[in-house]
Design a protein around this nucleic acid. Structure first.
Lengths: 107, 107
DNA sequence: TCCCATACTTCGCCGCCCGATATATCGTCT
DNA sequence: AGACGATATATCGGGCGGCGAAGTATGGGA
């Protein structure tokens, strides 16, 4: 799973949201680092819905403009948790080298 | 940076290695999870060398077969460290939700 | 003898990222 | 009034990168 996809799912942990809202939430959660491109977002939304990781929560019409809310499915919740664990484990392959090196230096 | 690329760099933290050796090292370091496809590896090697993150260390001929050793450059070392930090931070967006939820439940 | 491990190269498909473009409304600033 | 930025969605095409497959080659073990 790519980072953009991961952040789409992560944004939905806060509850259902629509496209633009997801972009903003992902930016917030990542401290401004992740800026989902619109093409990435809507492509990911279709793909994730097709995979059953997210689902359409409801559709609203606000001031003549449509707004489609998505929510995480149970599968999606599991997938994003597993992905987080995988990334943490992968990060440790590199970061885990620092602590042992320090210990060796001090010993 | 994608996961395969990341593990190529991470494998070289142990010292210079050649293609096949990198594949094996990445598999070890990830606990058997990451299996670099040959097409991925050699493509990544060319790309990373072009980007200056790795460099050819030496070329040997073992039993008539060529063997090209790569090593991490200083830029590569910085890049893989930064990438690890980025993944750890990204993972925390999701895993960081568990601990606060526990604290709230206990409070 | 045959398969497996080691070892590198190249090719092509496909999945996904992402910028550009189009469309539309509202508030703010000039 | 006009321009611009934020809000909001859809679609398309380029391009990067992952990955499997096939080709080539050798040595060792079953």
């Amino acid at each position: 799973m790519s980072e953009p996809t991961y952040f789409v799912l992560a944004a939905l942990l806060d509850g259902p949201s629509h496209g633009y809202g997801i972009i903003k939430r992902a930016e917030e959660q990542s401290g401004g680092r992740v800026r989902l491109a619109v093409g990435t977002l809507y492509g990911a939304l279709d793909r994730l819905a097709g995979d059953g990781l997210i689902a359409v929560d409801r559709e609203e019409t606000v001031q003549g403009r449509p707004r489609r809310y998505y929510r995480l499915t149970e599968d999606g919740r599991v997938a994003v948790m597993r992905e987080a664990a995988r990334m943490e484990q992968a990060a440790r392959v590199v970061t885990g080298r620092i602590a042992p090196a320090m210990r060796t230096a001090q010993a």
